[in-house]
Each structure stands twice: as structure tokens, then as C-alpha cells.
């Protein structure tokens, strides 16, 4: 109800009638999306719903057939605009034969030449200090990136994306490689970054159960945005149940929550 009286904030992400076909199959069939600046939102959808394609469009990795993407009120993704965006991929394609340490991984994010190669690590640490402390990765700095656990890697990836002081943070399935107990802490950490820095956070996930506790708004995608709203509204919406094809249960085994249904709908 209060939404009607609120003055809308500027949009961090604005997508209009976005259409994408991959191999002749329509994946996005006219997506309209407006994400207000400063919010922490979730973009959810089952596998094959076009989440990844939409994310790739936002990052300029996929050219849409029609429609438009506008980021940070400026325009479609371009190199200078992308520098103001933090992207956190699911995992790295890193081969264990590559001995990149966490400190080196953080240092290579700078566009300049590899000055870290000749500098003592103390100097690099000073430059990296605030983001490293914020994400609590100090103890990991000398570890090879290829040997990190899923949760550690996610913290390092977020830390590296924060180095550019982004205004918008896009996280792709952020807890895909994180164990279940670590998941709750992980979302707390992102929520903390969101509160402290006041940036826009978009969580892209197929799993609503954890996301909805922290997101202030949820967008459910299935070729189009089939419903959007506050997490409680979206979860109970008829259209979402149709989109997922099953009764959606936000049940999570070690958290007691009023929305838990206690069983799976089959």
C-alpha cells in the first residue's frame, strides 16, 4: 500500500522489452525490469528461465535482438560503465596448474600494468586493505585461488569486485559452491556490504529459500518477468507456482520460519 505514495528512486537497472533468441529458440521474450538504486533485490527463475542470458545482457556479454538495457541511468553496458559495476561469477575457470594467489588475484584487477610483480606484498596489502578487511580474507591472501573452498572463493570474488567501488553489484548464483551452513553467513555478509556501502545488489539465483530473507524485492523470471514484488507476495503468487511447475516451498531445514511448508509438493 505504501508503494503508491512513495517517490520512485532512480533506476540502477532498467530493461525494456528485451528479446533474445539463442539458436532460434526465444529465451527472453520481452523482459521489462526496473531495479531501484540502493536496493538489494533477487532475480529468480528455474533452470532454463533465461536468468543467465539476462545477466549476460546486463554485462554486455550478450547482444539482445531487440529491446534495451540501461545501467546506472546512463545507457547500455560499455567499458567505462562496466567499471562502475561489480560482477561476481559463480566460480572461476581456474586451472590448478595456475599458481595465482589471492593477493595476486586482487592486484590484477587494476587496469594498469603488473606493478605488483615487482612490489613487496606489504605495499600491495596497503592498497587492498579496506576491501580485504571488509570481506575478512586477510588470512587467505597467500593461498592459491585454485585451492579455495566455494565459500572462501565467493568472499574473494566479492572482495575483488569491491576494489573498484562499484555502484551496482551483480552476483550470479552466489551460493552455488557454498555449503548449507555457510550460506546464511554468506548472505549476512552481502547484506552487511549492502547496508554499509549503500550500493545496489542484484542476486541472481534459482533458489528463493535463502535469497528472500535478505532481498527487499524479488523478480521471478521465466522468459518474461512473470511476477515481482515483496518476497512474501512473490512466493505466494499463483504465477510463480505456474512458472516453476511445482508448488514452491521456501522450506529450509535448519531455519525455522513462518513460511515453511514442511514438505515438497509431490
Amino acid at each position: 500500500m505504501d508503494i503508491a505514495f512513495r517517490i520512485p528512486k532512480p533506476a540502477a537497472v532498467e530493461v525494456r522489452d528485451l528479446q533474445v533468441q539463442l539458436g532460434g529458440t526465444p529465451v527472453l521474450r520481452g523482459v521489462n525490469l526496473r531495479i531501484e538504486a540502493g536496493r538489494m533485490v533477487a532475480l529468480i527463475g528455474p533452470n532454463g528461465s533465461g536468468k543467465t542470458t539476462l545477466l549476460r545482457c546486463l554485462l554486455g556479454l550478450q547482444v539482445p535482438h531487440s529491446g534495451s538495457v540501461r545501467l546506472l541511468q546512463e545507457g547500455p553496458p560499455n567499458p567505462s560503465l562496466l567499471r562502475r559495476i561489480g560482477y561476481v561469477p559463480q566460480r572461476l575457470q581456474l586451472d590448478p596448474s595456475f599458481m595465482l594467489t589471492v593477493r595476486e588475484f586482487l592486484a590484477i584487477r587494476r587496469p594498469v600494468t603488473a606493478t605488483w610483480f615487482w612490489r613487496p606484498s606489504r605495499q600491495i596489502d596497503e592498497q587492498l586493505h579496506s576491501a580485504v578487511a571488509e570481506m575478512d580474507v586477510t588470512r587467505l591472501l597467500d593461498r592459491p585461488v585454485a585451492g579455495l573452498s566455494g565459500g572462501q572463493l565467493q568472499r574473494v570474488l566479492i572482495c575483488s569486485s569491491l576494489l573498484n567501488e562499484p555502484e551496482l553489484l551483480l552476483l550470479d548464483e552466489p551460493t552455488a559452491g557454498v555449503d548449507t551452513p555457510g550460506e546464511a553467513d554468506f548472505y549476512e555478509l552481502i547484506a552487511e556490504v549492502h547496508r554499509r556501502r549503500g550500493l545496489t545488489v542484484v542476486l541472481v539465483s534459482h533458489d528463493l529459500s535463502m535469497v528472500y530473507r535478505h532481498a527487499s524485492r524479488v523478480y521471478a523470471l521465466n522468459g518474461v518477468i512473470c511476477c515481482e514484488g515483496a518476497p512474501e507476495e512473490v512466493m505466494n503468487a499463483e504465477s510463480l507456482k505456474q512458472a516453476y511447475g511445482i508448488h514452491f516451498t521456501p522450506y529450509h531445514h535448519h531455519h525455522h520460519h513462518p513460511h515453511s511448508h514442511g514438505g515438497h509438493g509431490h
Partner: peptide
């Protein structure tokens, strides 16, 4: 050596490299 940062980032993740400009 000049492109060491870019090459290392490309090796770690091509999309991340793209987003980093």
C-alpha cells in the same frame, strides 16, 4: 609483461575480464 594483468584475469575468468574492461 605489459599485458600480464589482463592475461592473468582472462585465464581466471573470461567474462570477468570482459566486465573489467
Amino acid at each position: 609483461f605489459w599485458k600480464l594483468n589482463a592475461l592473468a584475469l582472462l585465464t581466471a575468468h573470461a567474462d570477468l575480464a570482459h566486465v573489467s574492461g
